[in-house]
Structure formats: structure tokens, C-alpha cells
């Protein structure tokens, strides 16, 4: 289309034309980037600062205008009573909060750990040659592609103590002697959440690891085979080191998601102290208890805890996001 009109007028000297074009392109590039950066600042930058500001005030949802600056009191404060007794309060000495932090970390490490191992196994199976690969790959991906809310509801019913099929099948197989309240009982609530999360997210892990597996050159295995290297040794000495960068990237993606988990727990085990994670605790304080400022302090701390873990992971694990490319 453009070719027909192109030479209708004498082109300016090549050099000036090029530099003019370059300048114009750089200017346009910045103009094109501006809306995106403004949008991100609007949704991520400014609200984050505002949240941190709230955490230093005594704001509540009904009393935002009259919010007073109270310094670090939401985090830590110490009052000495006339009797000489000291009372400390605030987030840093709040056992409920630290329990939520503990729950979150426990959930994150267990779920990501299992997902990595299962993901590796599934990826190794999917990487082999077999019939109906496309269909299998699609079927495996479904739990990851459907809304978490839907999976949580489905599992809530399957794990239901009275009518759930899991109790029914386990009873018939003799694995349990009486019906278990999987999502309500303090002993099993975390296990229930872990099962659902592992089921939902293993496919994602498997696919990311599969991407790494597909980049391993086939002739390495040929060579190993000729040298008579045992398949198990092949896996640990050849496959694993080569796909390690892909695994590391997959783990950080998952870890970030696991540390802020909300919707699965909100639906599957609401009001259960054993599965109350940081995000769930923050939401409770913000909306259910109207502890706006305190919730903001928790949200701020959650942000820094996640940032710290991410930085540690990336530096200690020497993760390179462009590693495979």
C-alpha cells in the first residue's frame, strides 16, 4: 500500500532523514509509554504510599477526615501505667498477626515445595512421546485456567463432612473410620487448603518446567546412553542442572502468589485460625472490624515481608529472568 506513494517526491538526504526519524521515534516511544506508566502509577504507586501513610494514623472508615498522625503506634507502642506496669501493643507484639505470618509462610513453603516436586514429575511425563499429547496437555491445564473461586467451591463440597464424596469414598475404602470435617477441623484445615492449591497449581509448575525440558538438547541423552549412564543418574546429573534456571523462575512466580493467597482460603476455610493468612487478616481488619489504620499497618508489613523474601530469593538463588532466552 505504502510502496506506491513512497517515491512520488524526492527523498531528503539519507543521513538527515535518518536522524530526524530517530529523534521522532524516540519522542513517540516516550509518548507511547506514558499512558502505561501513568496507569501503573495510579494503580500501584500512589495507593501504596497512601496505604503506608494510613498505617501511621488512627484512621477508620467512618472517620477518615479526622485521622490523626500517631507515628509508629500501630506498629509498636508502650504505655507505662502509674503503677509502673508496662503495657505494649501494636503489630510487632500482636500474637494474632504473627500467627497469620506463620500460617502464610507454612502454606507458601509447603505448597510451593510439593508443587515443584509434582510439577517436575508431571513435566517429565508430558515431555515423553506418547499418543494424544495435545489432549493430555489441555486436560492437565484446566485446573489452572478456571477461576480459583470455582475450584474452591467445588472442593468445599467434595471435602464437606456430611455429603462430601471424599469422606464417602474414604469410608468405603476403609481409609478413615468416621467422617472428617476436612475444612472445619483445626487439624485438617491447612491440609485441605494445601491439597486444593497443589491440585490447582501443579499444572502451571509442570508447564514452566516443561518449557525448560524442551530446551535440553536431545543428543546429550544419546551421548549419556552410549556411555551407559543410568537413567536416575542422568536425571540428577544432566536434566536437573540444565532445567534448574527454569525451575527457579517458576518457583518465584509461585512463591509470590502463595505469600499473598486470599481467594482460596476466603472460600474454602473462612474463619479458621489455622489457615488465616496475612491477606485474610488484613481484609478482616479493614472491612469486618473497621480497624482501618491497623489493617493498613498489616498491609504495609505484608508488602515488606514479601519484598524481603523476594529479594533474598533472587540474590541467594541467583535467579535470572532472561536466563533461558
Amino acid at each position: 500500500m505504502t510502496a506506491e506513494t513512497s517515491f512520488s517526491q524526492a527523498p531528503p538526504p539519507e543521513a538527515t532523514r535518518r536522524s530526524r526519524l530517530t529523534a521522532q521515534r524516540i519522542r513517540s516511544a516516550w509518548i507511547f509509554l506514558t499512558p502505561m506508566m501513568l496507569a501503573l502509577a495510579l494503580v500501584a504507586g500512589w495507593p501504596l504510599f497512601r496505604n503506608i501513610y494510613f498505617s501511621f494514623t488512627d484512621a477508620s472508615l467512618t472517620n477518615l477526615g479526622a485521622a490523626q498522625w500517631i507515628g509508629f503506634d500501630n506498629y509498636y507502642s508502650k504505655i507505662t501505667l502509674p503503677s509502673g506496669r508496662e503495657i505494649t501493643s501494636g503489630l510487632l507484639v500482636d500474637p494474632e498477626w504473627w500467627r497469620a505470618v506463620g500460617n502464610t509462610l507454612r502454606f507458601a513453603f509447603l505448597s510451593v515445595g510439593f508443587e515443584t516436586v509434582f510439577g517436575l514429575i508431571v513435566a517429565l511425563v508430558l515431555n515423553a512421546e506418547f499418543k494424544g499429547r495435545a489432549l493430555v496437555r489441555a486436560a492437565v491445564l484446566v485446573p489452572w485456567a478456571i477461576p480459583t473461586i470455582v475450584s474452591a467451591k467445588i472442593w468445599a463440597w467434595m471435602l464437606n463432612d456430611q455429603f462430601g464424596v471424599i469422606n464417602d469414598v474414604f469410608l468405603k475404602l476403609g481409609l478413615i473410620s468416621e467422617k472428617v470435617a476436612w475444612t472445619a477441623s483445626p487439624d485438617t484445615a491447612m491440609t485441605a487448603v494445601l491439597i486444593v492449591d497443589i491440585w490447582k497449581t501443579t499444572p502451571f509448575m509442570a508447564l514452566l518446567i516443561l518449557a525448560g525440558l524442551q530446551m535440553v538438547p536431545k543428543d546429550i541423552y544419546e551421548a549419556a546412553k552410549i556411555d551407559g549412564v543410568h537413567p536416575v543418574k542422568q536425571f540428577f546429573k544432566i536434566t536437573l542442572p540444565l532445567i534448574w534456571p527454569a525451575v527457579m523462575v517458576a518457583v518465584i512466580f509461585r512463591l509470590l502468589d502463595a505469600l499473598r493467597i486470599f481467594d482460596l482460603i476466603y472460600v474454602l476455610t473462612p474463619n479458621n485460625a489455622q489457615t488465616r493468612t496475612m491477606s485474610v487478616a488484613v481484609r478482616e481488619n479493614l472491612f469486618d472490624f473497621d480497624n482501618f489504620a491497623y489493617g493498613s499497618a498489616q498491609a504495609t508489613m505484608l508488602f515488606f515481608i514479601i519484598a524481603l523474601i523476594t529479594i533474598l530469593y533472587i540474590t541467594l538463588g541467583r535467579v535470572r529472568f532472561d536466563g533461558g532466552k
Binding site: L40, V43, W46, L48, L256, R283, A299, L302
Partner: peptide, 28 residues
């Protein structure tokens, strides 16, 4: 039309995705 800053912008952009949603819940 990459410039020296392109990589930084890309990383910054992706890092906003790593932020926990509850940290910006109240202001939004």
C-alpha cells in the same frame, strides 16, 4: 524503539505485578 531505560521500565512494570493486592486495597 528501545532506549537505555527500556529494561528498567520493563522490570518496574513486572514488579508491580508482584505486589500483594491487599497492600493497595484501602486506597483503591
Amino acid at each position: 524503539s528501545p532506549t537505555k531505560r527500556t529494561k528498567d521500565i520493563l522490570m518496574w512494570m513486572l514488579s508491580t505485578k508482584m505486589m500483594p493486592a491487599v497492600a493497595v486495597l484501602v486506597p483503591i
